[in-house]
Design a protein around this nucleic acid. Structure first.
Length: 427
RNA sequence: GGAGAGGUGGCAGAGUGGUCGAAUGCGGCGGUCUUGAAAACCGUUGAGGGUUUAUCCCCUCCCAGGGUUCGAAUCCCUGCCUCUCCGCCA
């Protein structure tokens, strides 16, 4: 959600800024709503004020033992008009709210202009893709050869876009999250949190998934409006919903490991092979709640924390700054980390780190008090994956594959795997 | 799942339908006193919004949403949450 002042004082500017990301703001409608809002609000408040005064007088008269028939008549005639105005006002406020909940964030100045992912800007590259003396396989074939990755049985149990792992591969998958969490808590200063995997509408509205992206979510068929989380960003960021933090509490740095559930509606035919795009996957998330002036530093820092994981795993990757056209709904700026996949001979997204500025905070009413006596201000929220565990596993399988069909274990993970250096096919 | 109790300001805790945005206590902030601090005393202390250059002024908010009423923190309905007891259970 954008600042109200954009709608009131500078709608032209807002429209121009949003144009950059290919969004057309309905300025005519907003202007109209805004001007009626203004007059109706003033009228409503005036009527309310009259009513309050007269009702108070009635009370005073009655306590003196007088009967205030005249006043009573005056006020009840106000009642009808007031009720009408109040309904009109709340109707307009609702319309404005719905409208603003559907307006995306404004891209930061530093975001490269562009239409789609082809215009994203590569910021840096790290590591050298290995040369292989044999024909590389993709993770699906590697997994099949190991006998530890099975999509058919997953399809039987659930359906398409699910996976089943077993043995050492399942262990490596688990160990990866362990390693990521340990790194972020002990080296990067994040506090580990455990959170619900099911959330209510309010939480999803707070982080921007609702009302616009309901079709991407799994909604539970229960009496209450429950959804499975699409990312830990939702429950973790909502920790600070409706709170005013003291100056010394900021920044907050949280990390959480959760499963993520995405309906992937509208991605038919995309990444149908393998575990790149699943309905259920694991992710270690990084979330920072920071003061407004520091959110861009925090974004750089947090992105670095995610990069650290890739570096420790010795996986070649690159950092890409998403262009205005490819930016997510809530983000003001996003870096994607893309790991090298030898089978696809390309870099694929494995983490996405974004600064939302005050966009989420405004929806969440997440604020802080800069000074003891000062007025509360909105915080900024920054988050990123650190990393997507399934995709990290894919990257390891493909980058560390051996001619024998085995997969080497990255040095950093070997202690977690009981000193084992290799995952070999089951006989 | 059954039975009961309750949700009020940073916290604790009052509140006969009529100056209640809310007593009181604690905490916080400012001051007096003190070499300094503590104690004591005095004052102050919620959030959002409208109008305004600003002050003033006004409106809304006592879990949420409806309703009754000239007037609701107080009465009625619905939902959510918390607590206690019983049952079941990882």
């Amino acid at each position: 959600m954008l600042e109200q002042r954009y709608f009131r004082d500078d709608i032209k500017l807002a429209a121009d800024l949003l144009k950059k990301r290919g969004y057309t703001l309905d300025t005519a409608r907003i202007n109209k709503l805004e001007s009626t809002r203004k007059s109706i609000q003033v009228e409503t408040q005036d009527l309310q004020s009259q009513r309050n005064k007269k009702s108070k007088l009635i009370g005073q008269e009655k306590s003196k033992g007088n009967n205030a028939t005249e006043l009573l008549a005056e006020v009840s005639s106000l009642g009808q008009a007031l009720k009408e105005k109040e309904t009109q006002l709340s109707d307009i406020l609702n319309q404005l709210r719905t409208l603003s909940l559907n307006v995306p964030n404004i891209p930061h100045d530093s975001v490269p202009a562009g239409k789609d992912e082809n215009d994203n800007q590569e910021i840096k590259k790290w590591g050298q893709p290995k040369k292989y003396s044999f024909d590389v396989l993709d993770h699906v074939d590697i997994g099949a050869q190991l006998g530890m990755l099975d999509f058919e049985v997953a399809a039987k149990i659930a359906g398409s876009r699910f996976s089943h792992m077993s043995g050492q591969l399942a262990r490596l998958h688990r160990v990866l999250t362990q390693f990521m969490l340990d790194t972020h808590t002990s080296e990067h200063g994040y506090k580990e949190v455990y959170v619900p995997y099911i959330v209510n509408e309010k939480s999803l509205e707070g982080t921007g998934q609702l009302p616009k992206f309901e079709q991407d979510l799994f909604k539970l068929n229960t009496e209450q409006e429950y959804y499975l989380i699409p990312t830990a960003e939702v429950p973790v960021t909502n920790l600070v919903r409706d709170t005013i933090l003291n100056g010394h509490e900021v920044p907050l740095k949280f990390t959480a490991h959760t499963p993520c559930f995405r309906s992937e509606a509208g991605s038919y035919g995309k990444d149908t092979r393998g575990m790149i795009r699943q309905h259920q996957f694991e992710k270690v998330e990084l979330v920072q709640i920071v003061e407004p002036g520091k959110s861009y530093d925090a974004l750089e820092e947090l992105t670095g924390h995610a990069e650290t994981i890739l570096q420790k795993l010795e996986l070649p990757y690159r950092v890409v700054s998403l262009c205005t056209g490819d930016l997510g709904f809530s983000a003001a700026k996003t870096y994607d980390l893309e790991a090298w996949l030898p089978a696809q001979k390309t870099y694929r997204e494995i983490s996405s780190c974004s600064n939302f500025e005050s966009f989420q905070a405004r929806r969440l009413q997440a604020r802080w008090r800069p000074t003891e006596k000062g007025k509360p201000e909105l915080v900024h929220t920054v988050n990123g994956s650190g990393l997507a565990v399934g995709r990290a596993l894919v990257a390891i399988m493909e980058n560390y594959q051996q001619e024998s069909g085995a997969v080497a274990i990255p040095t950093i993970l070997q202690p977690y795997m009981g000193g084992q250096k290799l995952i070999e096919p089951e006989v």
